[in-house]
Design a protein around this nucleic acid. Sequence first.
DNA 1: ACCTAAGCGAGACGGTACGTCAGGTCTTTCG
DNA 2: CGAAAGACCTGACGTACCGTCTCGCTTAGGT
Lengths: 210, 210, 210, 210
Amino acid sequence: MSRKSSQTKSLQNSELTEPKTAGRKRCPITHQNILEATSELLSEIGFSNLTIEGIAARAGVGKTTIYRRWPNKASLVMDAFLAETAPQFPYPNTGSAITDIREQMKLVVKVLNSSHGNTVATLIGGSQTDAELAEAFRTRFLALRRAESKAIVKKGIEQNEIPSSIDADMLLDTLYSPLYFRLLIKHAPLTETFVDQIMDLVTNGLTNNA
Amino acid sequence: MSRKSSQTKSLQNSELTEPKTAGRKRCPITHQNILEATSELLSEIGFSNLTIEGIAARAGVGKTTIYRRWPNKASLVMDAFLAETAPQFPYPNTGSAITDIREQMKLVVKVLNSSHGNTVATLIGGSQTDAELAEAFRTRFLALRRAESKAIVKKGIEQNEIPSSIDADMLLDTLYSPLYFRLLIKHAPLTETFVDQIMDLVTNGLTNNA
Amino acid sequence: MSRKSSQTKSLQNSELTEPKTAGRKRCPITHQNILEATSELLSEIGFSNLTIEGIAARAGVGKTTIYRRWPNKASLVMDAFLAETAPQFPYPNTGSAITDIREQMKLVVKVLNSSHGNTVATLIGGSQTDAELAEAFRTRFLALRRAESKAIVKKGIEQNEIPSSIDADMLLDTLYSPLYFRLLIKHAPLTETFVDQIMDLVTNGLTNNA
Amino acid sequence: MSRKSSQTKSLQNSELTEPKTAGRKRCPITHQNILEATSELLSEIGFSNLTIEGIAARAGVGKTTIYRRWPNKASLVMDAFLAETAPQFPYPNTGSAITDIREQMKLVVKVLNSSHGNTVATLIGGSQTDAELAEAFRTRFLALRRAESKAIVKKGIEQNEIPSSIDADMLLDTLYSPLYFRLLIKHAPLTETFVDQIMDLVTNGLTNNA
DNA sequence: ACCTAAGCGAGACGGTACGTCAGGTCTTTCG
DNA sequence: CGAAAGACCTGACGTACCGTCTCGCTTAGGT
């Protein structure tokens, strides 16, 4: 693949010191239009029915303009997804770390049950085929939430709500994976009750459950 | 959907009494060749890069022969997957239900780390786009294992290892989802230690951990 | 260029014993539609504005169907041209070979001044870039007329109208080239009078002209 | 056509009094570079494979710089061709007009058999599609040689080598067209012998040939 | 010595057409 | 009638150039 080195590698989120760049600047409005068209079509027809031609047509833009900016469908979709979804998973601050996590999990459930849920599922699905999308999903979506979550776990350890021996990644996988699994497999409903059940189980353990 | 009524609806796994059928019999070797070609290509290039034309070419078979036997790519892939993977998740019988589950989880880890893991990931990935594949995955793969697992949980309840108040689906999702999540996201390794950590956590709970 | 060996090599005009060939036959009506659409568009918009997509649309045919049958635009246009133009250059039979040629030259002038003239010019023009078209033009168009012309020259020699020392190709080039040159360059009109002038000059020679 | 009035209309070769023009001057070295790049590419890949982008890249120049100076590909190519080819068709002066023409025809054969021949062919080919190129070829190339040739014919008439009744254009077309026709069609070799044959035929005529 | 109107290389932009690939259907010939 | 081959229409792919349009310079009179 022969790509110019000056190109925005959108998957790496880098807006680093582009050295000089002669020539006309890339129009940011065009950028916005493409992302919006992508988001709309994504929720309307899903990732795999999405076509670059369709996006270009909807955005009123030439296909080449899209190919000039994104190396593939996956990274475009990732950008579009993050542009509208990034600020949607705030952590509450209730004093108790456990309660914070429980409430944030309920927030995740809400988002996954919204139209964004389908997009998330679609991105994880696409990641199974597209290594770049997978990497982007890990670093640009999951890692950000995971960092916040780990901060809460740390708080929980400091407040003696969580034993210091616990591996934070393992704990967070155990708590959050069931939500994503139900999103992906759809074998059972994804509810706030489900969150409470998981959290109760993990808090008390099987042997101490009422 | 305009399909001939005499066709084997492979997604429903039915091998029912085809009433008469004059004419040449469907060659079972051809059937086998197609499934093998599918399996090979599936693990080589993944579900979404898989093409019917590619399978037909590899199997030395006409495209129509495939379309005559399977309604879509998903069901063919599902058949191919199950044909080689079905008998791979046996439950041990150690006396303790908790131990049975723990050991079986380790078996699942082994399989997911083998070449079949990629196929499973690919099938879940494809399911996000293909409703029929999703349904097939749920009913022909997941439901079978889930039924076995529920039997063990029931045994656990009878043996007072597991409280009777526990929702079996919730418990099993909490235990198994992290394995699949790591398979799909690849953000952390999928090891037997991980299984032990999860099982310890769920058994004892956060508040009672050493 | 990876072409199947069983394919009709339309530039070579061969309809030789295709050995067996299972599979659906190429629909001759489709063939006809494509040629007609090509001829129409050719005279409407000219060779270089002609697009395969346009032809496919006009013929109500998929692009691939065209690419399956012709290796490039040039050979398609050549076929279309020959299909409608082939039987347009008959030789008269007046007894005198010289008169035969003179009359046939006037016929050529008529055709080159018709809408076919533009097509011929376009084909010669395209030949400068496309070696296959050039070869096709030589063997499928020019060679056929040249063979007829040589027969007349031979008759002329037998009837003592033409010296036997004359190189027929040279003679025919001298007589016909000016017609094609005026067609191509358009620096002067292409008329029957012009034919008479040429023929008089070549018959009598500069030194014996009245 | 919406062109700035101050622009050099290169097809008409006019270097008329540009009225004032403040601002930076057009760099003549750039001009030269573009013409050279065009000539090189023209003989390498031919007129119709020639692209403005390719020329710009080869010349190390922006596309706009080319579009600012030439209205279309044809006129650029014509300029490039004439810049290197103009002084290549000198007439000898042997005393006899017939001999002058004969020798000049042999010179033409030499040039057409050199690398310039391909360029000439390509320009005539391109003219069939591009009316502006055709016009440029007629007025800036052919008309110049034709004027010289007509002077020689006139001399021939004055010296009683050529009958005064002869139409000079017709005579010159009859003599020179076969050379260009063989260049374009390549159905037979283009040799000095061929020139002699033509000249002998036209001089003596069929009925007086030895 | 400043101003201002080009020229200039670079490259973004909306387009059109390219030639290819795979989809799923239909048709032909053979066994 | 089943199977293999392969023609068929459709639609999207990613690429190449088109001719136009900024962009941030440089260059050179005109005042």
